[in-house]
Simulated assay, not measured.
Amino acid sequence: MTTAPASAHPYDGMDPYTTGCASTKVNTGKKASLKNEVGDSLGTIRLFYSRRCGTNWGEVSVAKSGSGAITVFTSKTSRSFSYRPGNGGHHWGNMVYAPSGVCAKATGSVTTGIGRANKGSGTTPKACG
């Protein structure tokens, strides 16, 4: 008997809102500031979990003009999503399957203009379901 690798789960890389997984989302309480090199906060990233789907993803709150990336990691896989300005500065990444007992974390980046002072990043602490 063979089993598919964890990265082959059907929710991996999918949008939590279009799949309906976000309807059971839980804020894990894990968050981080997206800070530039001098420590100024340019936004926040939060890690979410879906009880129904057994998945994690990250969501950022940044300036409406911000663009960047969101990546969610487990010990076995990761999924990334790039976002563009708009949507009121609220963006979310794609999901990674992380059922009970699997730890996950999210990283985010944002660029709000030219120069290093307008680029920030951060990583949430791990949450283990």
Rank of each mutant, 00 (worst) to 15 (best):
G101W: 05
V38T: 15
V110T: 14
V102W: 09
S41Y: 10
D15W: 00
T44S: 13
S109I: 05
H91N: 12
N27E: 13
V38I: 15
K76I: 15
P99D: 08
H90D: 07
C21R: 04
V26R: 02
A22L: 12
A32Y: 02
C21P: 02
P16E: 08
G39E: 12
S33E: 15
N118G: 05
M95C: 04
R79G: 02
I70L: 02
G58M: 02
R116E: 11
T19S: 08
T74F: 11
K119I: 15
D12A: 09
T77Y: 08
A6I: 13
S50E: 06
R84P: 02
R51H: 12
G129E: 00
T19E: 02
P99A: 00
A8Q: 11
L34F: 06
S100E: 04
Y49Q: 05
T18K: 05
T111I: 15
T107M: 14
G129Y: 11
C128R: 10
G122W: 15
A4I: 04
G108P: 05
W57E: 01
G113M: 10
R51F: 05
G113F: 04
V62G: 07
Y17Q: 05
K76L: 12
T112M: 09
I45N: 03
G58S: 09
T19Y: 07
T55E: 01
S23N: 07
V60I: 13
T44D: 08
G122L: 12
T3F: 14
K35E: 09
A98C: 13
S7I: 10
G101Q: 08
A69T: 10
S50A: 14
